[in-house]
Write a protein that binds this DNA or RNA. Structure first.
Length: 423
RNA sequence: GCGGGUGUAGCGUAGCGGUUAACGCGUCUGGUUGUGGCCCAGAAGACCGUGGGUUCGAAUCCCACCACUCGCCCCA
């Protein structure tokens, strides 16, 4: 057990699992394009201040403990992106996308990195599908990103998800809400667990999603964000709900769904699948009208979501959903080494040139036909091409049907067309 | 950082104090001369997570550590 091991919280995606990934990414790309989103890619590594400033001083927890950072020789600290949104907003500002026709709708895929303790559905490197709409305050934008998130799961065939929705206000109304919440919690201080008392100091909003026993009942009487919204946030939220209703998209108003950082505003939403364990959120999103400014850009509204690929795959497996298998070669070329091996290589190459997938038996020395056909049988082979000395002498090959075992002789020159007709 | 569970061949498991650690799947070879699947025969593959201890004897009991895993914390 001394061989080099994979890092904790990191994963190898083996071919079998990769099929799920490819399927999800194909579906997601297709769906996003149907809404007019454009693909963008941003670097994995960014200057640390992008995330420091984006995350805000209130939650320096991430910066200190959960980001992978390196100090360069010149003293600059660079960080493996722990999320997508900050980088996308940075790219929007830096490349002048605010001069494009607004809003700008972007999507991307890729890995993000967080040094967390791994558990079911949570890894230190995980991959996301992100969609963002920048430069638009209309609730229609909120609606569109939600529809993509929900639509993806629906088109893949998920049956048992819940769509959680809330509005957490903005810098105008959030302070008033926080005051009310803190007053309420102060009244119930004696009923709070030590963990929750700590939260009360650090980040009172987070008590709302506390898992401590008894909090369910206590929080039922807590003030709700949606009862403290300013006029702007309130009308935004009601219009969003009206649009969802018109589309008959069901949702659960979750008063305990929050975002811990200041630049998040108004809409917050998540898609849950209870069956994958404690990390039930398959997808989280919302509005971040304060982010562009926080990273030093012009004030720009934005809304979007991040959708975890690993969790989506876990969920697919729970649902019993199987991705379509990728195409595999159905032609297998066998030979008897020597000149026949050379001919086999040429034949395989010619067939591939015609767009036909082909495997050739690899053999340093002469290999028995039995072992070559056994190998062919391990794959979804439909035709085995036997290139032997006898055949070669007559300028033809034997084509064996793996289904029935019947064989025919085909002139080498006709093999391509013959197979194209047969496949 | 804090708890629970688990560590035996590539994978899934059995063995739970006594001799060369077993089974299934998988892998490889063979069952005459150039022919797969089924079947049959055989082979390779495990320092039984690591280190200590108890014992005449330990994969089996005890301790520690490590790894994996689930959960808490946190969750951009």
């Amino acid at each position: 057990m001394s061989s080099i091991q994979r890092l904790k919280g990191f994963q190898d995606v083996l071919p079998e699992d990769r099929q799920y990934w490819d399927y999800l990414m194909t579906k997601a790309t297709d769906l996003a394009r149907r809404y007019g989103f454009l693909r963008i890619d941003v670097p994995v590594l960014e200057t640390n201040s992008l995330f420091e400033r984006g995350v805000g001083t209130a939650s320096d927890f991430f910066v200190k403990k959960e980001m992978y950072s390196i100090e360069e020789e010149d003293g600059e600290v660079v960080t493996m992106r722990p999320e997508f949104t900050a980088g996308l907003v940075r790219a929007y500002v830096q490349n002048g996308l605010h001069n494009w026709p607004q809003p700008v709708k972007l999507f991307t895929f890729g890995p993000i990195f967080r040094r967390e303790r791994p558990q079911a559905g949570r890894f230190r490197q995980h991959s996301q599908f992100n969609c963002e709409i920048m430069g638009e305050t209309d609730p229609m934008a909120d609606l569109e990103v939600m529809l993509i998130a929900i639509g993806l799961y629906r088109e893949i065939g998920y049956s048992d998800l819940t769509f959680q929705l809330n509005s957490i206000g903005c810098p105008v109304c959030k302070p008033g809400y926080l005051t009310a919440l803190e007053a309420f919690l102060a009244d119930h201080r004696e009923n709070l667990s030590p963990t929750d008392r700590e939260r009360l100091q650090r980040n009172p909003l987070r008590i709302l999603d506390s898992k401590e026993t008894g909090m369910e009942e206590l929080l039922a009487g807590a003030p709700r964000t949606i009862d403290h919204l300013c006029d702007d946030c309130d009308s935004h939220f009601s219009e969003l709900r009206r649009l969802l209703d018109v589309l008959e998209q069901s949702y659960t108003i979750n008063h305990r769904l929050v975002r811990g950082i200041d630049y998040y505003t108004k809409t917050a939403f998540e898609v849950w699948d209870q069956r994958i364990g404690a990390q039930a959120a398959l997808c989280g999103g919302g509005r971040y009208d304060g982010l562009a400014e926080a990273i030093g850009g012009p004030p720009t509204p934005g809304v979007g979501f991040g959708l975890g690929i690993e969790r989506a795959v876990l969920g697919m497996k729970e649902e019993g959903l199987v991705p379509p298998a990728p195409p595999e070669p159905v032609v297998f070329v066998t030979h008897f080494s020597g000149e026949t091996k050379v001919a086999a290589v040429k034949i395989a190459s010619d067939l591939r040139g015609l767009g036909i997938g082909v495997r050739v038996a690899f053999a340093r020395e002469k290999r028995s036909m039995k072992s070559q056909l056994r190998e062919a049988n391990k794959f979804p082979t439909r035709f085995a091409i036997i290139v032997g000395e006898d055949e070669l002498a007559q300028g033809q090959v034997t084509v064996r049907s793996m289904a029935g075992g019947d064989q025919v002789q085909v002139p080498m020159a006709d093999l391509g067309p013959w197979l194209q007709a047969a496949l």
